[in-house]
Design a protein around this nucleic acid. Structure first.
Length: 892
RNA sequence: GGGAGUUUAGCUCAGCUGGUUCAGAGCGCUUGCCUUACAAGCAAGAGGUCAUUGGUUCGAGCCCAAUAACUCCCACCA
């Protein structure tokens, strides 16, 4: 059989993915086995695969594949998120390109376009995930707005409303003037921006002429006194309804009871005094615009100030903007500054850097705005959600994220859940006009709403025409917080078999930036609607950055295309490269070259396969001692390393587990084991060793399979004839076992002796082909003598009792190794080397003696530690004696 | 402004309950090799004041305190 000398992923990956799908290996149904469940963090339905998804989904696939091979009923449920703002923005843009203005469409017409768009372009990302090898149960693919999930959201809203946890109120919210909707606090991104600080003159509202007294600091212009107020947003003076100063500020005590004229506007407003004002900032005087700043709003409530809203929803000035009405807020700012300056109302302008809130979805500058919105009370649910994380019922990996989580939950504010959009779950609140009042009916469907309304207001309600449903939809996260429950229909049918079997799920894998948006809220929903946690472990991935540590983004163009990477390095190579450098919670500085390492590894095991499959198996030969000890060692070694791998997995140290597996395969299996048993050129291998080797190779592929699914499946099938439908995916993961440390120690010593011989050859310029003799004085790994001869190219190996002249020596532990050499002994160099070794050994001995001479150490340290020090002493002493003897011999 | 975290080899990171010769791994680097599976490879090797300073201890990358630098989260003083 001819096997390509290089592993070619592209021809293999498609074949096996199809095979897995055809044989329904990914599909899960409840049965008697223990379940292992992961729900995918649903990517935006409009999304395209990026490196963050690659990392996140690779980790999920590793965990799910491993669980499957541990005999669990593994279920990984995929799906997408309707992402209301992002998707609506995309659809609006698409319509605009086709010359259609959203405002000319009815709600139903718009939704029709949106669904069409979703069906056609949505969910690309799920197809892309297949290229990565993701073993999702595609039969279960869900959407946060499909009928089951939609109805679940409706029921939850009604339930919470009836419990009094949802209310409607007028609040200051973060308004996105581009998307024309409120957004939650979490959706506002503060960015540093360079602007100006404008110092405006507010004249005192008085008809009297005023002559300031010397040293009062009161400014006047043409005999009229004024104060200066600093602002970054001069356009908001149109909504000013007060000016505030600190009550204890001596500069302003004279203002008490006075009024000032808003510059350019001419409105007279009162001076209020409140300790909120920071006397150090600006001029210590603050203009108050209750409609457009959250702090001003609070002061406005406190002092019962008038609220003047000067903006339209789209960020242009409304009728309160006087001559500026209809202008955009930023254009207005420019114009108003010009006008004020012309009128002599600007004292000065300074450069200023401050943080400005931007919409996460549209990047528009957020406008604080008063509006009627729906809110959810968070205090009680937050308390429960905090408890289960604090007491480790839910474990975070790494645990440091508990701090972040606690901090947010302890300072939680009510959740603004309404959005002024069409794409999303429409709020199931219906308004009814009853005797001139507006009443609200909340119900999960039109029919139910009508029934309730007719019952409650029989005189006012006769048909649906008498009900007006709220125009708003719910925040996207109001559906995704139910994800682990709604995927198994646990809201609508709380006692169904699936939810009982799969819930709570096992692991959640997500990025830390949605810990509040999503993780915390899922925990709340779990407690509220199931009385149980939604998952047991949360694994936080890092953020994928570029080499320079920058976040990957479309704008920077520093994000590689994952599909191109897969084509270049193979899915296995990319998966491995990413995992190797991504411990939990650490950001991952991505560099394409790490995929190269993954690709090289796939090629390495591919070539091990070529080697093994190229051997001729002897029908008659018996296994010799060397092969027997080689097989035994490799078995012991695997049993030992598997324990490490299991521990790594238990602690969610995936990159460690992968690195450990990598070394087991590359170093132990390829570099040592295969070289140990490799038959001489033209020779055959005995059947027993061959069979053991296939068995070991198979199990190594099982260990690697969760990380590198494709190449391992291909090799597994090439190693032996398999029945139709058989797959490594359902092979059992090998487990750690008791192992014999003595075999491992002997082999380690043999390996060190071999390395010593090779090093000696290297440093003396001897060809590897030239055989040498080897004499060992001291403890020796005799069962590995054959191996040492083979791998060290040693013609003869003997144990001796006395030192040897005319040989170069090196030490392994306390054993002296002599290689006789008639020529080429550089006496000077050897003596120097020995002198260095002696100095090190003596220094080491001195430190040991110091410890042992310390009474407090002898008394204070545990016996075991003291005994160890005594052994160190003995070893060092014998080593020193040996070195001294060698020096003496050489010096002769 | 509040909080959390990080700092160990050129790079990315391990280092568990303070105690083996503990200063590690991978990559990169240097040297020698086209050795019959693999140059996407083989063999060998060099590389670190464990951020700084003090403390606790018989003993400190590891525990404590202070300092410095960097990162993230929260708040959002006009």
């Amino acid at each position: 059989m001819a096997i390509e000398s290089k592993y070619v992923p592209s021809s293999v990956e498609e074949k096996w993915y199809k095979y897995w799908i055809d044989n329904k290996i990914f599909h899960s149904e409840p049965d008697h086995r223990q379940p292992y469940t992961i729900v995918i963090p649903p990517p935006n339905v409009t999304g395209v695969l990026h490196m963050g998804h690659m990392l996140n989904n690779t980790i999920q696939d590793v965990l799910i594949r491993r669980a499957r091979m541990m005999g669990k009923n593994a279920c990984w449920v995929p799906g997408t998120d309707h992402a209301s703002i992002a998707t609506e923005a995309k659809v609006v843009k698409m319509l605009a390109e086709r010359g259609i203005d959203k405002r000319q469409l009815s709600r139903d017409e718009f939704l029709k376009y949106a669904w069409e768009w979703k069906e056609q372009y949505g969910g690309i990302i799920l197809k892309q995930l297949r290229r990565l090898g993701a073993s999702c149960d595609w039969d279960r693919t869900a959407f946060t707005m499909d009928s089951i999930r939609y109805e679940s959201v409706m029921r939850v809203f009604v339930d919470l409303y009836n419990k009094g946890l949802i209310y409607r109120g007028v609040r200051m919210v973060n308004w996105d003037p581009k998307a024309l909707t409120a957004v939650s606090d979490e959706e506002v991104i503060y960015k540093e921006s360079h602007g100006k600080l404008f110092y405006l003159r507010y004249f005192i509202d008085t008809t009297e002429s005023y002559t300031p007294t010397e040293g009062s600091g009161i400014k006047t212009l043409d005999g009229r006194p004024y104060i200066v107020v600093a602002t970054t947003r001069p356009e908001t003076i149109l909504g000013d309804t007060a000016v505030c100063v600190h009550p204890d500020d001596p500069r302003y005590t004279w203002l008490k009871g006075k009024r000032v004229i808003v510059p350019g506007v001419g409105r007279s407003v009162q001076i209020i005094m409140d300790e909120y004002v920071d006397r150090e900032f600006g001029t210590g005087a603050l203009k108050i615009t209750p409609a457009h700043d959250i702090n001003d709003y609070n002061l406005g409530m406190k002092y019962n100030l008038e609220t003047i809203d000067i903006f339209n929803d789209n960020g242009t000035l409304n009728e309160h903007g006087a001559q500026y009405a209809g202008m955009d807020r930023f254009a207005c700012r420019k114009q108003i500054v010009k006008d004020l300056d012309a009128a002599g109302l600007i004292e000065k302008i300074e450069d200023y850097t401050n943080n400005v809130g931007h919409s996460e979805r549209t990047d528009a500058v957020i406008e604080p705005k008063l509006s009627a919105q729906w809110f959810m009370r968070m205090e009680a649910v937050a308390k429960k959600a905090l408890e289960v994380v604090e007491d480790d019922t839910i474990q975070f990996h790494p645990a440091k994220f508990k701090n972040t989580y606690r901090h947010w939950l302890e300072n939680i504010k009510d959740w603004c859940i309404s959005r002024q959009l069409w794409w999303g779950q429409r709020i199931p609140a219906y308004y009814v006009d009853v005797d001139g009042r507006t009443e609200v009916v909340v119900a999960a469907s039109d029919d139910e709403a009508l029934r309730i309304a007719m019952e409650r207001y029989p005189q006012a309600v006769h048909s649906m025409d008498d009900l007006r449903q709220d125009e708003d939809v719910l925040d996207t996260w109001f559906s995704s917080w139910l994800w682990p429950i709604s995927l198994f229909d646990g809201i609508r049918n709380p006692d169904n078999d699936e939810i009982k079997y799969y819930y709570p799920t096992d692991d959640l894998i997500t990025a830390p930036d949605i810990i509040f948006f999503w993780v915390a809220r899922m925990i709340m929903a779990g407690e509220e609607f199931r009385g149980d946690i939604p998952f047991k472990h949360v694994y936080f991935t890092g953020i994928v950055r570029d080499k320079l540590g920058r976040k990957m983004s479309k704008q920077l163009g520093n994000s590689p295309d994952p599909i191109e990477l897969i084509e270049k390095y193979g899915a296995d190579g990319v998966r491995m490269g990413m995992l190797l450098t991504a411990p939990a919670g650490n950001d991952l500085p991505f560099d394409e070259s790490i995929c190269e390492q993954g690709r090289n590894f796939a090629n390495k095991i591919w070539n091990a396969l070529r080697l093994v499959k190229g051997w001729q198996v002897s029908a008659t030969a018996q296994q010799d001692d060397d092969n027997r000890i080689s097989v035994e060692w490799m078995e012991q070694r695997m049993a030992c390393v598997l324990a490490e791998i299991e521990r790594d997995f238990n602690e969610y140290r995936l990159s460690e587990a992968l690195m450990t597996s990598y070394k087991l395969v590359w170093d132990d299996f390829c570099s040592w084991y295969l070289e140990m048993i490799k038959p001489a050129h033209g020779a055959e291998i005995d059947a027993e060793t061959y069979e053991s080797t296939l068995s070991i190779f198979e199990r190594l592929m099982c260990i690697l399979h969760p990380f590198m699914p494709f190449v391992t499946e291909e090799i597994w099938h090439t190693l032996r004839q398999r029945a139709e439908g058989e797959t490594i995916m359902l092979a059992r993961q090998p487990l750690s076992a008791m192992f014999d440390q003595r075999v491992l120690d002997s082999c380690t010593m043999a390996q060190e002796i071999i390395a010593g011989v090779r090093n000696l050859r290297n440093s003396k310029g001897l060809s590897p082909k030239e055989e040498v003799e080897l004499y060992l004085r001291g403890e020796a790994p005799s069962s590995f003598y054959g191996i040492i001869r083979k791998l060290g190219n040693v013609s003869k190996i003997e144990s001796i009792d006395s030192k040897m002249d005319g040989a170069i020596s090196f030490m392994v532990g306390t054993t002296e190794c002599f290689v006789p050499m008639s020529q080429n002994i550089d006496k000077e160099a050897e003596l120097k080397k020995l002198a260095d070794e002696l100095a090190y050994a003596e220094g080491f001995l001195a430190s040991v003696m110091k410890k042992l001479g310390n009474e407090k150490f002898i008394n204070g340290a545990p016996e075991k530690v003291v005994a160890l020090e005594r052994k160190k002493q003995a070893d060092a002493e014998s080593k020193i004696a040996a070195i001294k003897a060698q020096i003496e011999a050489l010096s002769k």
